[in-house]
Computed example of a mutant assay.
Amino acid sequence: MLEKIDKDVMHVASRGWLTSRFHFSFAEYYDSKNIHFGVLRVLNDDIVAPQTGFETHSHKDMEIVSYVVEGELTHKDSMKNKETLDAHNVQYMSAGTGVTHSEKNDSESLYLRFLQIWIYPDKNNLTPNYGSFKYEKKDFVNTIKHIVSPLSGSASVKINQDANIYASLLEENATLSFELQEKRQIYLVMIEGVMLINNMEVSKYDAVKITDELTLSFKALANSHFLFIEMASAVSDVDYF
């Protein structure tokens, strides 16, 4: 089953320096029926103005992945990591027992757009950890690139949860397919473009919840950029909330 979440029903917050599209309850936006999807707790599509950003703040017991869409993201944390990442780069932070960090757009003229993804860890009170991988645009063209996996997986970035993240740049009229195992589900985000997913049309900023499907077909009606999180479909709220 494919359930489309139209961009027009999503909560968008604007703070002048920041515009955020919230896929799930976050900050001032609360909907008791839209807290999470499986182990996926937060997905924010953030646009950050030049010379601004998120000042130092704290996190605990969360696997946090950032995927840079355009511009540059500069990260600095209490583990003494400092790094600047650009388009298609992936950043990972396991907050564990507690960590502080800042995320800035240090550019003097360019806007930063990135997806901020929070996933519940498989256990609490882990030792904080940080990592990243600098993918290039060519790595994503007309293929589904596996960018994040569990610790037992094969992706370059690994997290403490049974969840995988994939991204793709699909050129107009190109097609791809993806096979799911039983009892797995997907949350997909359209970053750019227009695409058919099993004949359902989705466009920029839309999302799709995918359950009880074994095969997905993708066809780009225009150059399309998308990302999806694949995870187990049976998650007990008792384990996470």
Rank of each mutant, 00 (worst) to 15 (best):
E3K: 14
I5M: 14
D6I: 12
D6E: 14
D8Q: 13
V9W: 08
V9L: 11
V9A: 08
V12Q: 14
A13S: 15
S14A: 08
G16W: 07
L18Q: 05
L18R: 08
E28C: 08
S32Q: 11
S32F: 03
K33F: 05
I35Y: 03
F37Y: 15
V39F: 03
V39L: 12
L40M: 06
V42A: 02
L43Q: 03
L43N: 00
N44F: 03
D45K: 09
D46I: 08
D46A: 05
I47F: 02
P50C: 04
T52Y: 12
H57Q: 07
S58C: 09
I64P: 00
V65L: 00
V65S: 00
S66F: 00
Y67R: 00
V68P: 03
H75R: 05
H75G: 04
S78Y: 01
K82Y: 06
E83D: 07
T84A: 15
D86W: 07
S94R: 11
A95Y: 06
G98F: 11
V99W: 08
H101L: 11
H101V: 12
K104F: 11
K104M: 15
N105E: 02
D106Q: 13
L110H: 09
L112K: 06
L112A: 07
R113F: 06
F114M: 15
Q116H: 04
I117C: 00
I117T: 01
N124I: 15
N124W: 06
N124M: 15
N125R: 11
L126D: 06
T127N: 11
S132W: 11
S132P: 00
K134I: 00
K134T: 01
Y135E: 05
E136C: 08
E136F: 11
D139Q: 04
T143N: 14
T143F: 06
K145V: 03
G153A: 10
A155Q: 03
Q161N: 13
A163Y: 02
N164W: 12
N164T: 08
N164Q: 10
I165G: 01
Y166E: 07
A167Q: 07
E172A: 13
E172F: 02
L176I: 02
S177N: 13
Y187E: 01
E192R: 12
G193T: 02
L196C: 01
M200T: 09
E201Q: 15
E201R: 13
S203P: 03
I210S: 04
T211K: 14
T211P: 00
D212G: 07
L216N: 09
F218L: 13
L221R: 05
A222H: 10
S224R: 08
S233G: 10
A234V: 12
V235H: 02
D237C: 01
V238M: 10
D239I: 04
D239W: 02
